[in-house]
């Protein structure tokens, strides 16, 4: 700082004429303006020839890359969505098909079942009719046997009691008794 002070004292003539404000020392204006114009031209040339086109290109390239990547991502996303939709569709189709098969099978089974039941019913009915017939026959046979036995027994009893009976009378008497 000391050297600064001394140099300012050396420029004392100028400093004294411009009281305190070096900004108003017009003797330095030409110098500053000259170097300023030079500096500005230098910066302008550096910027317009090299820096700005380069930065602009870098930014544009980055923007392009980003746009491309986003487009690609959207494309992939769309494809994934399509695949998902196809999968859903296939799933839905399969489900409908399964429903249909189930329904068909159910109908088929029901028909078979109904037919079998009907057949079984018919068989049962036939068999029970046969059995009833057989039972009726047996019952009828049993009545005849009872009558025969009764007639025989009555004849034997009559004989044992010393009587003599006509078999036809006996049968008629037994018959009459059984009806009553």
């Amino acid at each position: 700082m000391a050297t600064d002070t001394h140099s300012s004292a050396g420029d004392g003539v100028a400093a004294a004429s411009a009281p305190g404000m070096p900004q108003l020392d017009f003797s330095t204006f030409g110098n500053q303006i000259f170097w300023l114009v030079l500096a500005l031209i230098a910066i302008y040339l550096v910027l317009s020839r090299m820096a700005l086109p380069r930065i602009g290109a870098v930014l544009a390239e980055r923007q392009g890359t980003i746009t491309n990547d986003i487009a690609k991502a959207e494309d992939l996303n769309k494809r994934a969505k399509e695949a998902e939709a196809a999968y859903e569709q296939a799933l839905a189709d399969a489900r409908t098909e399964a429903q249909r098969i189930i329904a068909e099978t159910k109908v088929g089974i029901k028909q078979d079942l109904d037919a079998a039941i009907a057949k079984a019913d018919a068989e049962i009915a036939a068999k029970s009719a046969d059995a009833e017939k057989a039972i009726a026959e047996i019952r009828a046979g049993a009545m005849d046997a009872v009558r025969d036995v009764a007639t025989d027994t009555v004849g034997e009893i009559v004989t044992a009691m010393g009587g003599k009976a006509d078999p036809a009378d006996l049968a008629a008497a037994v018959q009459a008794r059984m009806k009553g």
Partner: peptide
Amino acid sequence: HPMDQFIVSPLFGDGGVAWYTITNAT
């Protein structure tokens, strides 16, 4: 000396400040 820092002075030598002089501003 708050204003001394604004003094434009030649970097080399002790002469005056002509328009082409290389100064601290330069």
